[in-house]
């Protein structure tokens, strides 16, 4: 039987959710509404002349093959970042969950990178990978690899992915570790008694029981890769070389804040909004079914 809490006062429940509704309204719906409105206008930077242009901003966007390239790039980028960040974090969490000496120290250390701001992380990594002065940058040169991410598109993309993944592993690690620790030890012991190998135990018992965590993290990581890798890209490559690392959200920034093309930038934000709504809806509809809530 489900518990149905009952409020005596009809207005109390509304009053209680009001702060959250107000926050959502002010910080989500209002800006989104403004973006939608701006995307239909052609506006000068100072906002003194605005003209309604209908969907012209969108038409221009989708007839620009550079934009379509950016769409493709963003999906690849987000997929790779999500996959790598989650895979590595799970591996580390499984290892740190073992009864080993100093496990607490490893756990603490693995959480640290999360405290570093993305732009700061990127600057730290750029010191390491800088083609002329970075330690690894120079080392790669001495072993004969021409390392110059300023000019080499695949190298630039690889570097941006590496830093984005490194930054997100800690977050995933915390959740995976918590998930692992909440799995009843009895299940694992029972399987071990039945003679299951540790690999089999992991894929048949641990991994399925982790699925709520994995599902949650997939959504969080995709959102991270789409929206929060801005600092990394800005500090490392600024979208270059060419347009090799210009993801959708970075392009919104460049067109809106650097180029001051407000209309186009707003239209791009709207596209991004739609993409995220679709992605999340898709996941809840098709992926969540397979999730096993313990």
């Amino acid at each position: 039987m489900r518990l149905q809490p009952v409020f005596r006062n009809r207005f109390l429940p509304y009053l209680l959710v009001l702060p959250q509704l107000a926050l959502t309204g002010i910080f989500f719906f209002w800006p989104a509404g403004v973006a939608l409105y701006q995307s239909l206008l052609r506006t000068d930077p100072f906002g003194l002349r605005s003209r309604f242009v209908g969907v012209a901003n969108f038409v221009r966007l989708f007839s620009d093959h550079y934009y379509l390239h950016s769409v493709k790039l963003s999906f690849w980028f987000s997929f790779l970042v999500t996959f790598l960040a989650m895979g590595l974090a799970l591996l580390l969490a499984v290892m740190a969950n073992k009864r080993i000496r100093g496990a607490r120290i490893y756990r603490t250390l693995l959480v640290w990178p999360y405290a570093v701001a993305p732009a700061t992380a990127a600057v730290l990594w750029s010191f390491i990978f800088q083609p002329q002065i970075g330690i690894i940058g120079r080392a790669l040169k001495t072993v004969g690899i021409t390392w110059n991410y300023y000019l080499n598109a695949p190298q630039a993309l690889a570097l941006v992915i590496l830093v984005s993944v490194w930054k997100q592993i800690s977050y995933n690690f915390i959740f995976f570790l918590a998930g692992l620790q909440s799995i009843p030890q009895a299940l694992i012991e029972a399987a071990a008694v039945d003679g299951a190998s540790s690999r089999r135990i992991f894929w048949r018992i641990v991994f399925p029981l982790l699925s709520p965590t994995t599902f949650f993290l997939t959504i969080m990581n995709l959102n991270y890769a789409f929206f929060e890798t801005f600092g990394v890209i800005d500090a490392l490559t600024k979208g270059g070389p060419g347009k090799a690392t210009e993801t959708l959200s970075y392009k919104v920034y460049v067109d809106g804040m650097v180029n001051l093309n407000i209309g186009s930038s707003a239209a791009q934000s709207v596209v991004l909004l739609v993409v995220v709504i679709l992605l999340t809806a898709f996941q809840f509809k098709f992926v969540e079914r397979k999730v096993h809530y313990a």
Binding site: Y150, L151, N152, A153, G240, P241, G242, K243
Partner: peptide, 11 residues
């Protein structure tokens, strides 16, 4: 920048 970088890469 974008077009020149492509040219320097030989594209």
């Amino acid at each position: 920048y974008e077009e020149v970088e492509k040219a320097f890469q030989g594209q």
